[in-house]
Amino acid sequence: MSSKHQKVRIGISVGDFNGIGPEIIMKSLNDKSITDFFTPVIFGSGKLFTYQKNIFKLPVNFNYITEASQAQPGKLNMVNLWKDNVNVDLGKPTEESTKMAIDSLEAATEALVKGDIDVLVTAPINKDEMLKQGFKHAGHTGYLEEKFGKKGLMFLVTDDLKVAVSTHHIPISEVAANISKEKIKKQIKLLNQCLIEDFQLQRPKIAVLGLNPHAGDGGAIGKEETEIIEPAIKELFDNGIMAFGPFPADSFFQPNKYKNYDAVLAMYHDQGLAPFKTLAYEEGVNYTAGLPFIRTSPDHGVAYDIAGKNIADERSFSEAIFMGIKIFKNRSDYKDLMTNRLQPKKMVSENGIDEDLPEETE
Rank of each mutant, 00 (worst) to 15 (best):
K4G: 08
Q6L: 15
F17V: 00
F17C: 11
G19F: 05
G19Y: 02
I25D: 11
S33G: 06
T35A: 06
D36C: 01
F37N: 14
V41P: 02
G46T: 13
G46D: 03
Q52H: 06
K53F: 02
N54M: 10
K57Q: 15
P59G: 03
Y64P: 05
M78Y: 03
V79M: 04
K83A: 07
D84P: 07
D89L: 14
L90C: 12
G91K: 08
K92Q: 12
T94K: 10
T94A: 06
M100E: 12
A101G: 12
A101W: 03
L105D: 02
A108M: 02
T109G: 14
T109W: 11
L112D: 07
L112K: 04
V113T: 09
K114A: 10
V121G: 02
T122A: 15
K127R: 12
D128M: 11
L131G: 02
K136P: 08
G142F: 07
Y143G: 05
V157C: 10
D159H: 10
P171H: 13
P171E: 01
S173G: 06
E174M: 12
A176T: 07
A177D: 13
I179L: 09
I179Y: 11
I184D: 06
I184K: 10
K185I: 03
K186R: 15
K186H: 10
C194V: 14
C194F: 14
E197R: 15
Q200S: 13
A207W: 11
V208M: 05
V208F: 03
L209M: 12
P213N: 05
G219T: 02
K223H: 09
I229E: 14
P231N: 01
A232R: 00
F244M: 09
A249P: 03
S251I: 13
Y258P: 00
K259P: 09
N260A: 08
V264Y: 01
A266D: 09
Y268E: 11
G272E: 04
P275K: 03
T278N: 10
L279W: 06
Y281I: 14
E282A: 14
Y287P: 01
T288N: 13
T288L: 11
P292H: 00
S297I: 05
V302I: 15
A303W: 01
Y304H: 07
A307R: 01
S316Q: 09
F317E: 08
I321Q: 12
M323C: 11
F328I: 05
R331F: 07
R331Y: 11
S332K: 10
D333T: 15
K346R: 14
M347C: 03
S349I: 06
S349P: 04
D354G: 00
E355T: 00
T361W: 13
T361G: 14
E362M: 09
